[in-house]
Amino acid sequence: MNESNPTVFIVDDDASVRKSLERLIKSVGFNAETFTSAEEFLSRKPYGGPSCLILDVCMPGLSGIDLHKKLTREEIPIPIIFITGHGDIPMSVKAIKNGAVDFLPKPFDKKELISAINQAIDRDVHTRKLLIEKEEIQHRLNTLTPREFQVLRWVITGMLNKQIAYELGVTEKTIKVHRGRVMQKMQIDSVAELVRLAQKVGIAPPNK
């Protein structure tokens, strides 16, 4: 399977539903892969390209809801479209709040499904882009010495070198050198850019 082509994973215990969804999704040009249970899906090796998951809520063994929780816990960010035979509104609200892309009561129209799949794939592409970016930032961060990382955290608070030197009990000159190295290693020119990168990877300012 070409991993650059978006792929839709289908998990449903009902054979008819599985087969019909696979046909429909393939007919509009996506890759499709089916699984009879949540457990079977979990045993598949991770997929590299953009993808989304069409997940039946009620299944024997691990339910769709359980699988969603497990994926969230394990930080596997695949977008999920829930499908269900029970038009259960409270359950759908909860699922959306927990990050599902959509919640489609069976039987659903092709338009609803394709629109949900497109939305999910877009989200996945975006997520993947963010992830790659984050990995790259992290990669640069890994080149910093502990002292440089410490200075970085003070710099993003917007403090002057003098102030940082006072906080760390070193000379202003020393801070100036560390800051220069940080900017060079992170391949940026401005403090504003540094703040943006730090936010992306979730670096917080030091606690006083």
């Binding site: 008819s16 019909s20 429909l24 038009g87 069976k106 039987p107």
Partner: peptide, 25 residues
Amino acid sequence: TAALAHELNQPLAAILSNAQAAQRF
């Protein structure tokens, strides 16, 4: 009722998806 709705919705979902896939083909 809930359980029976499920029993009906499963085949209905499959029928609709199949029919729309056939239209595409």
